[in-house]
């Protein structure tokens, strides 16, 4: 068998093998660095602090939504609602302010709206045993309808002047670091600790991997399934608040354009995980970072927006191909 020969051969050229390993394992990151270098050469301001923080601020909007989708992927489902939640949250804040409520009250209301979306999906999936795809597309459909309904068919709600605290969420800084980046770091770390370090995250992964085995280990499976979707909505809610602060208005259906980035990034994390297709926080963050970087680089180079979309699609495809080749390479190595 050829596999036996391979095993003998591997001992002989260890160094070249190590280099190959490194290249293959880091290929996606190496490629990403390559893209950054190209952008940096084409435009000198690409690597400026301001621009980098710009990219990260954009990530801070998409990443929370992507984390939400990632949570759904962990319990082997899918969440199509992040865009809707983001849109509804924005409309609630701006609508509340327009109706004369204080910013604080509107913010709380928007969190409640996000929580309500989360509770609905959670109940549909964990109590009514609905297929997550059907459940979340149903919520998406109703959510979109509400967004259009309350805005008389899609008229944005502008608030002018926008309240200072709302402004501060996106534009303020703490110790010179923009607030959204701080929020991003906090939410990333919290989720990382929750998923990778805490018993609750462990149990959530277990529920996703095997419903029966988790139940037989005394884990309340329905609770964890529900929690995943609830937290997903809360995550999207955070993204929605940052977005609302950025655009200072409530735009119906605005979340839609973030939805695909979010879903794409979450799926990318599964193919980039070291453990068998496991959705993970940093992979998801990396996914959103790639998308934001490409979008930013293209904008700097003055390329029309539609090429950005095209490039995003292409880049996901390239990453997919690379990961497939990586998997093949690894398979050959193990045999």
């Amino acid at each position: 068998m050829s596999s036996l020969k391979n095993n003998v051969l591997t001992d002989e050229n260890k160094i070249s093998k190590k280099i190959a390993d490194l290249l293959v394992n880091g290929s996606i990151v190496i490629g990403f660095i390559g893209v950054i270098i190209v952008f940096a050469i084409k435009n000198s301001s690409f690597l400026s602090i301001d621009n980098i923080s710009d990219i990260l601020m954009r990530v801070s909007i998409t990443a929370p939504a992507a984390f939400g989708v990632m949570l759904a992927l962990i319990v082997k489902g899918i969440d199509l609602t992040p865009g809707t939640t983001m849109g509804l949250v924005g409309l609630t804040i701006t609508g509340g302010i327009t109706a004369g409520l204080s910013f604080g009250v509107s913010l709380v209301l928007s969190l409640l709206v996000g929580a309500l979306v989360g509770i609905c999906t959670a109940l549909l999936i964990s109590k009514a045993n609905l297929n997550p795809f059907i459940a979340t597309i149903a919520i998406l459909f109703i959510g979109n309808s509400i967004e259009k309904g309350v805005t008389q068919g899609g008229l944005p709600i502008y608030i002018y002047p926008s309240p200072k605290p709302l402004n501060a969420i996106y534009r303020g800084t703490i110790l010179g670091i923009p607030n959204p980046i701080i929020i991003l770091i906090i939410i990333t770390l919290v989720l990382y600790v929750f998923l990778d370090k805490s018993e609750y995250g462990r149990k959530m992964y277990a529920c996703g991997e095997s419903i029966k085995a988790s139940r037989a280990s005394g884990i309340p499976v329905r609770f964890y399934f529900g929690m995943a979707y609830f937290l997903a909505a809360i995550c999207a809610c955070v993204g929605g608040i940052i977005l609302c602060s950025q655009i200072r208005s409530g735009q119906p259906l605005v979340g839609h354009s973030y939805m695909w980035d979010a879903i794409g990034a979450a799926y990318l994390s599964t193919i980039m995980s070291r453990r068998n297709f496991r959705p993970n926080v940093f992979g998801t963050l990396f996914g959103t970072l790639v998308m934001a970087t490409v979008a930013n680089g293209f904008t700097l180079m003055g390329i029309p927006f539609y090429w950005k979309e095209f490039a995003k699609g292409l880049i996901i495809l390239v990453i997919l191909m690379v990961s497939v080749m990586k998997k093949r390479y690894e398979r050959r190595k193990t045999f």
Partner: peptide
Amino acid sequence: EESLVKSFMLMENITLS
């Protein structure tokens, strides 16, 4: 299907319950 989460590590299975 039921007595183990087969994609989990040995130690994770031992402590799961």
